[in-house]
């Protein structure tokens, strides 16, 4: 926790925090002294590192869960409530991409991407916002993507799901605002994480050349934006999409 903060640690739920961007967000909140609960389909070396780190183990929870399953989301949220008593922050980060032109995209690929990226985020928002409403406080951040705004060849399904998250963000901000809950989204640009593996090195270098910041993004870039949007002082900031892309789409 920062030296100037005397506030009680927040309980932060981050879906898909076992690797890549999600792991970066988990690390950032742990570094701030917050309590962090995350889920993924299976554990990873990053998760095992946090579980074995005496400095964070008592304020870190990992549970295996498939966020595209309503039952798994309910079980995960209930377990967090049972252990930590409340949820202050939800980061809907879990997502999947399947690249390929739409003419060759299978039903299964469409289902997998829609079920996790859209339905999973809705399941989590439903479970968590119900508890936040009772407490009259909370903040939700949905991890979108610049391709939800600009599109990208071969990522039609993924782009559609990310655009959907932005609509969900605005609707939930209107719905939950009177209950003291803010809802925002972050649209990251192209990050050097596993999620960018659908792009080849030439495509990534082309993106770098077109990016004013002159580089791909890091998970830490997005984690800092998460912390800004979930700062307890930012109660007047809701229903917005913060684009963090090095100026690519500016």
């Amino acid at each position: 926790m920062s030296e100037t903060s005397t506030a009680e640690p927040r309980v932060v739920v981050i879906t898909g925090g076992s690797r890549g961007l999600g792991a970066g967000i988990v690390q950032a909140y742990l570094d701030e002294g917050d309590v962090v609960a995350t889920c993924a389909r299976s554990s990873t070396p990053e998760v095992e590192k946090w579980q074995g780190d005496a400095a964070v183990a008592d304020r870190f929870l990992f549970l295996p869960a498939d966020v595209s399953s309503s039952a798994d989301c309910a079980a995960f949220v209930n377990a967090v409530i049972e252990r930590f008593g409340r949820i202050d922050v939800l980061i809907n980060n879990a997502g999947v991409a399947r690249d390929g032109v739409i003419g060759l995209t299978s039903d299964e690929d469409i289902d997998v991407v829609v079920d996790l990226n859209i339905k999973g985020s809705l399941y989590m928002a439903r479970q968590v916002s119900r508890r936040m409403m009772v407490r009259r406080s909370g903040t939700i951040v949905n991890i979108s993507s610049v391709v939800g705004r600009s599109g990208y060849r071969g990522l039609a399904v993924y782009s559609a799901t990310k655009a959907a998250l932005e609509g969900m963000t605005r609707a939930l901000a209107r719905e939950l605002g009177t209950r003291g809950i803010t809802v925002n989204a972050i649209a990251p640009g192209y990050l050097r994480t596993e999620m960018s593996h659908g792009l080849d090195e030439e495509q990534l270098q082309q993106i770098v050349r077109r990016t004013p910041a002159g580089r791909l993004g890091d998970p830490e870039d997005i984690a800092r934006a998460c912390q800004f949007l979930t700062d307890p002082r930012n109660t007047y900031l809701t229903g917005q999409v913060l684009v963090v892309d090095g100026g690519l789409t500016g």
Partner: peptide, 13 residues
């Protein structure tokens, strides 16, 4: 409707 959702959460908890 929001208050009904809130009541449902209270009852579930």
């Amino acid at each position: 409707s929001l208050e009904a959702a809130e009541l449902s959460a209270v009852l579930e908890d």
